[in-house]
Amino acid sequence: MPDEPAPAAPGGITGTTTLSEAASKAMLARHGVPVLDERTAASAEDAVAAAKALGFPVVLKLLGDRIAHKTERGLVRLGLTGAEAVRTAASALLAAATPEDGDVALLVAPMVSGTRELIAGLATDPQFGRTVMLGVGGVLAEAVADVQLRLVPIERVDAEEMIEDLATQRLLGAFRGEPPVDRAALVDVLLGLSAAAEADPSIVSADLNPLIVVDGRPVAVDALVEVER
C-alpha cells in the first residue's frame, strides 16, 4: 500500500504523495498553524523523558513515512498516565513495527480532550483551485455537513466570516461547561493554512482532523499534508 502512488488529484496534478504526521505538522506550524506541542523519540526511554517534559497524560504513536492507518493497526496508545505505562507502550509499539514500515520513531504528545471537534484544511478544486476549509468535525461530521470554504488566499476578515457562516453557531459558544471557542485562535489556524498554501504551491491538500476544542482553543491533534510529487 505505501508504495502505490496516491490517486491523481484534480486540477491537472498527476502524482501526489502524503507527508508523515510529524512532517505535516512541522510544515503547517512554520506558517503559523498552531499544532500540539509534541516530541519524537527514538527509544522507550526517550519517550518517557519526553512524556515527563510534556506532562501526563500523553498519547504515544508509532511514526513513519510509510505508515498509514495507525489506528487500524493499533499503533496509537491513548491516555498514558505515568512513566511505566509510557515505557511499556513504547516498547510494544517499537516491537510492532514491520520491515515494510521503514524507519520508525515514536511520537509523544499531550493527551488533550474536549467535547467539540472541528475540521480544517486545504483542498484543490478543479475549477477554483486551492481552497481553505472549516467544518464541524466528529463522528457525525459527514451527516451534519456544516462546512465553509474560501479561495486561497484568505484575509483575516474572510476567516472571521467562515467561522460566522457555519450553521452550527451554538457549538462555538459556551458548551457543556467549556468556554466559547476562541475565534481569534481559530482565525489563526485558517490564516496559517492559507499562508502555507500560498508559500508552497506543491500543497494539494491538508487535513487538520480532528481540530479538538480544548478549553476553547482549537488544537490540531492530527495533520496530513498531501503534496505534488
Binding site: Q127, L149, E161
Partner: peptide, 15 residues
C-alpha cells in the same frame, strides 16, 4: 457546463 462543487462556489461568492 461542468459540474461545480456548490460549497466552493458558494464560498467564493461570499468571499
Amino acid at each position: 457546463s461542468l459540474a461545480t462543487d456548490d460549497r466552493v462556489f458558494d464560498g467564493a461568492l461570499r468571499q
